[in-house]
Structure formats: C-alpha cells, structure tokens
Amino acid sequence: MRAMESYMSIGSAIAAALLWSICAVAADRPALKAGVFEPPRPAPELSLEASTGGTLSLADYRDKVVLLGFGFTSCPEVCPTTLAVLAQARKRLGAQADQVQVVYVTVDPQRDTAERMRAYLKGFDPTFLGGTGTPAQLEAVRKNYGVMAERKNIGNSYTVGHSSSVYLIDRKGLLRAMMPYGRLPDDYVHDLRVLLSE
C-alpha cells in the first residue's frame, strides 16, 4: 500500500514537472508578429505533386522553417502580392534564407499543373515550391489547415476566392503561427529569425 502511495507521488511530481516545463517553454517564447497557435500541433502532412516533379511532402523539410501558402497562378492580386512579400523576406534574411522553404499549394488544380506552377513561382524566387493534386487531395489538405476556397464563375472563365494567410511551420514540423495577408516582408523576417534561432 505504501509502495503504491510513493509511486503515485512520484508520478504526480513528474506530471507537475512536465507541466511546469511546458508552461516555462511557452512563456519563454519570444512574441511573433504572426498569429500564434498555442499549444502548437504537428502541421498536417502533404502528399502532393511537386512543381519540381516527384512528391511534395513536408517531412522532407524538417530541418527548415516552412512558409506554407494557398493560392493559384491566375490570381490577379492576392497571390502575386503574397509571393512578392515572401521573396523579399527571403532576400532580407541573407545567409539564413537557405533554411527557409516556401511552399505554395494550388486551390485551382484544373489550371495549375506542376509545370505551370514551376514557371509561375520561378518568377518570384527559383527556390519556391508548388504543390498540386486532384481536387479531392487538395480539398483534404485545405480541410486540415482550415483553408477556404470557393470557385466563382465570371462569364466563360472563373476565379477562386481563397484564404490568404501564410502558415509558419517550425523545424520540428509544428504548425506554430499564421501570418495574415497584408503584412510586410520585415514582419516575416522577424518571425523567421525567431523560429530559426530555436
């Protein structure tokens, strides 16, 4: 009986220490400019066709900070702006830019082939990676991240309204934060430096 009690107190002490260390780590984290998820969860995995050929999987970039965005190559305003901001942020990071991977997943699989995405993204930064797939695959990815995409017909053509935030995934593959559309390159540089320093 006494042994049971001591096991229970040791267990409680370990649980308390674990809780304390989790809280201490959370409290020590420097503030980000992006919206922060607390506690962070593992970023949902992708298994899509990469714009460079082969399979696009987040697990391949575990040692890098990943900036994950959603959009389409025919987007008139939001996507070009976002991608230009991300390209600027990478430039301003200097030598640390190699530790950052931008991944852009299409919300328009009908038009965005891997080849088309590669050509489009290269215009912003040759290291940017695109991801495409079947409508069902892409819908599953969007659901996992809480991303909205809605096709709107315009005459004989169409556009796609979509969420415009960019997700920040740390080196451990945790979904740490979400940067809203309209933030400046320096906001990304600040947050990337924080995440890269961990």
């Binding site: 992006a34 919206g35 922060v36 998820f37 607390e38 996992n144 979400m178 809203p180």
Partner: peptide
C-alpha cells in the same frame, strides 16, 4: 475566424 483551432487550442494575433 481565420483559424482552425483544435480542442483546447488558442490563437493570438497581434
């Protein structure tokens, strides 16, 4: 709002 939150999770956007 703009975020998908798991049970118990919070989102803090400055």
């Amino acid at each position: 709002g703009p975020a998908l939150l798991m049970p118990g999770q919070s989102f803090r956007l400055p």
